Amino acid sequence: MPKDSPMTSLKPGQIAPDFSLPAHDGQTYTLSALRGSRVVLFFYPADNTPTCTSENSQFAAAFPAFHAAGVKLLGLSRDSLQKHAKFAEKLALPFPLLTDEDGTVCSAYDVWHEKHTFGKTYMGLVRTTFLIESDGTIGAVWPVTRLAGHVDDVLTKCLNTA
Rank of each mutant, 00 (worst) to 15 (best):
M1V: 09
P2F: 11
K3N: 12
D4S: 15
S5N: 13
S5I: 14
T8W: 04
S9Q: 12
S9R: 12
P12V: 12
D18K: 06
F19A: 06
F19P: 07
L21W: 10
P22N: 13
A23N: 08
T28S: 12
T30W: 03
T30H: 07
S32H: 14
A33N: 14
L34D: 07
L34Q: 14
G36Y: 14
S37I: 02
F42Q: 00
F43K: 01
P45V: 10
P45M: 03
D47V: 05
D47R: 01
D47F: 05
T49N: 07
S57N: 09
S57V: 06
Q58K: 12
Q58F: 06
A61F: 07
A61Q: 14
A62Q: 11
P64K: 03
A69C: 11
G70P: 02
V71R: 06
K72E: 10
G75N: 08
L76Y: 03
L76S: 06
L81E: 14
H84Q: 12
A85T: 15
A85K: 15
L91C: 04
L93F: 01
P94D: 07
P94S: 09
P94L: 04
F95R: 11
F95V: 09
D100T: 10
E101P: 11
G103N: 10
V105K: 05
C106I: 01
S107E: 15
Y109L: 01
V111T: 04
H113C: 02
E114L: 10
E114Q: 13
H116C: 08
K120C: 00
T121C: 02
Y122T: 02
Y122I: 03
M123T: 11
G124V: 05
G124S: 08
L125D: 01
R127Q: 06
R127F: 00
T128M: 01
L131D: 10
I132E: 03
E133V: 07
T137W: 06
I138K: 02
A140H: 13
V141I: 05
P143S: 04
P143E: 00
P143Y: 00
R146K: 14
R146D: 09
R146G: 00
R146V: 11
H150Q: 08
H150D: 06
V151F: 07
D153N: 15
L155M: 09
C158Q: 04
